[in-house]
Amino acid sequence: MIHTRGLTRVFSLKKKQTVEAVRGIDLDVEPGQLVAFLGPNGAGKSTTLRMLTTLLPPTSGTATVAGRDVARDPAGVRARIGYVGQRNSAGENFRVGDELVTQGRCYGLTSAEARRRAGEMLELLDLGPLAARKPGTLSGGQRRRLDIALGLVHRPGLLFLDEPSTGLDPKSRAEIWSHILRLRETYGTTLFLTTHYLEEADSMAERVIIIDDGRIIAVGTAEQLKNDLAGDRVTLTTHTAQDAGRAAALLGGAAEGVTVRLRAASATAALPEHLRTLEAAGVKVATAETVRPTLDDVFLTLTGRSLSDDDLPA
């Protein structure tokens, strides 16, 4: 559904300076997948998305989206994809229903068909009673549902969503997600989304692509990435700092006071082994805890930085 080779975008600033926002990205997304595109602010997420949706011409490299080349046939790409941007898709001066009808017409539907689809979308996203209202009178969650409705009017096979749940309260976020997932079940839409909610990428996406500084640094299922790149965290406490030191030396961890921290590919398998080793050495363990890694741990392992520190909404 999406194939890019060496996709690059350079922005020129004043005084002949240039910034390479995206540096030679190779991406492959198969039909029907739900892919989360993850990375800190300024990593090149939005620039990549803007190139894939024909909003921005690439400086070099190629991208085929829904079977069409973004540079050679942008109109062909546009006809086959849907896009839900970070900001509000509906114009402030227009009624919700009118904007949906306009959107259908933008995709070349006849007036009657555009009206029918608009009604369908209002129904699908629980916006029915709001058709005659203007976007300014809607709640944040309702506006976001309207954005998604506008992205779906022409039933695209591939939908791009840029931070679909940012700035929403937990209830609205859950609602948006239930709509997104239902949509996938109904239409089999391929979904490519950026998010900075790590737990969303973790629980919803079948594939996670991590981008940093314009380069893709990891691709895989959340489970694979966590197992391969981060490993589980094991935390033990002892009664004395001396015991903690010995435990850290024996197991290859790091001691801090009476706490010992270490990593293991599979904590559930490693922990009994560790406890036997420590007992044989005469080290008394007070508590033992294991934690599954998060995608943030993956990012930390890869870059030495934490994603959650700087990835606040722009």
Partner: peptide, 20 residues
């Protein structure tokens, strides 16, 4: 002026992604 409003708001971007 309205174009400016729509650029800031995001609706222009939405129309730009359509084959219009």
């Amino acid at each position: 002026y309205y174009v400016l409003m729509e650029l800031v708001g995001g609706s222009m971007e939405r129309m730009m992604v359509t084959p219009l």
